[in-house]
Amino acid sequence: MIYQTLLKEFPYLLKGVLVALELLAAFMSLGFVIGILLSVMEVYGNRWTSMVAVMIERFFRGVPAVVLLFLFYYGLSDIYNISAFTAATLALGLRTAAYQSQIFKGAIQTVGSGQMEAARAIGMSKVQAIWSIIFPQALRFGIGPWSNEFASELKDTSLAYTIGVVELLRRAKYIVSYTYGNALIVYGLCAIIYLILVRSGNTILYRIESKLQMPGFETRRERG
């Protein structure tokens, strides 16, 4: 009985996967750009820019994700008519930006100050040196930890459930509601879908990491 329902509702669930992936793409891109900005402000900025970056990073790492979601959705709704999807993008995007900034900061520091000095010594500006010398190396050091962050954020798309984004988990919940039960089977299927998504994501990132391998950058992990 429930299996027939699940079969029938599978496209409905898959649409939830699509919504989750869209959300993930939106807030991970936001987090990537802001995360790089924060890390550069922290490592290369002056006292003030680095202090601002640290404060932003501490705030978004120190507040629970659900609280951030409520703040950006219900909180902002008071002054601006914000959609649940946009609120989730902002809340989760800024949170992952804080985590990603820590990854990039560590990666940049792994590159070593000699690389920056050598770049400046042949006449590159600071921005040129960061872009052409530091980033390409930091990316290689950072992709391993970044893959972990990616997997954890993929799972955390389900938190958007709490403010009403109709993603995978909420759709599962709807099915549970109208079939009066079967929670174990429906949420179990949901778990399997998340698992498959995380594993495929990691496999892709692992391939990219392998492609970026070169002499002097053997950062490859044991398993993807």
Binding site: V111, G114, Q115, E117, A118, A119, R120, A121, I122, G123, M124, S125, I133, P136, Q137, R140, M214, G216, F217
Partner: peptide, 20 residues
């Protein structure tokens, strides 16, 4: 200084070749 530096070669003790 960026305009002058190409005129002044600098060779480091630890080479500092761009590793990538």
């Amino acid at each position: 200084i960026n305009k002058i530096r190409p005129d002044i070669g600098f060779v480091f003790q630890n080479f500092n070749l761009f590793a990538h």
